[in-house]
């Protein structure tokens, strides 16, 4: 497609193959797959501890991660994702300060939807024990039933919601 060419993205199958090799390397070296939401949740727990240490240390879920939630492999992986993404965007000249949206869709509306979507996704990833990386990608590659079910439900939920929010991308 024209947009694809102008942005010079890598061939999607090659990108997928390389992503799969990264996942395989993670299985072989770490013994676990890739993950993103776990690292993010621990950063959230750390923020909580900075503000109200007593409260969050006693909380049933964040509290289980102890006083130093950042000392965990998924937090380091999340930091790596940011570094790798930045380097890639830099060398491919794709860094641009913007918020993509449809021409007639207001910026603040787009940001409110991003916030709301983020809250839902963050909450859901804790409930399901992972996100698109840790469950859908990793778990499906491991042929785990629950992860396949999760993946199918993500697309079901996505397609149901997308129709009602199409105006934010397309006029």
């Amino acid at each position: 497609m024209s947009e694809e060419n102008s942005k010079n993205y890598l061939n999607p199958y090659l990108a997928g193959f390389l992503l799969g090799m990264t996942l395989l390397a993670s299985f072989v070296v770490l013994g676990t797959g890739l993950g993103a939401s776990g690292g993010l949740a621990r950063i959230s727990a750390w923020c909580g501890l900075c503000v109200a240490p007593d409260h969050f240390l006693k909380s049933a879920y964040f509290g289980a991660w102890g006083e130093d939630p950042l000392n965990y492999y998924l937090v380091f992986m999340f930091a790596g994702v940011m570094v790798g993404g930045f380097v890639s965007a830099l060398v491919s000249r794709r860094i641009s300060i913007e918020a993509e949206r449809g021409l007639s869709f207001g910026l603040y509306n787009r940001l409110w939807l991003a916030l709301g979507g983020g809250v839902a996704a963050g909450f859901a990833s804790r409930l399901a024990r992972g996100c698109t990386s840790g469950q859908a990608l990793t778990g499906t590659a491991l042929m785990m039933t629950g992860s396949v079910v999760f993946l199918l439900c993500v697309f079901a939920g996505g397609y149901l919601a997308a129709y009602f929010f199409r105006r934010q991308w397309y006029d």
């Binding site: 979507g117 963050g122 909450f123 859901a124 990833s125 993946l151 439900c153 993500v154 079901a156 996505g158």
Partner: peptide, 11 residues
């Protein structure tokens, strides 16, 4: 979780 996550992803 999957349904809610898909909602959050699309929105």
């Amino acid at each position: 979780g999957g349904l809610l996550f898909g909602f959050g992803f699309a929105v």
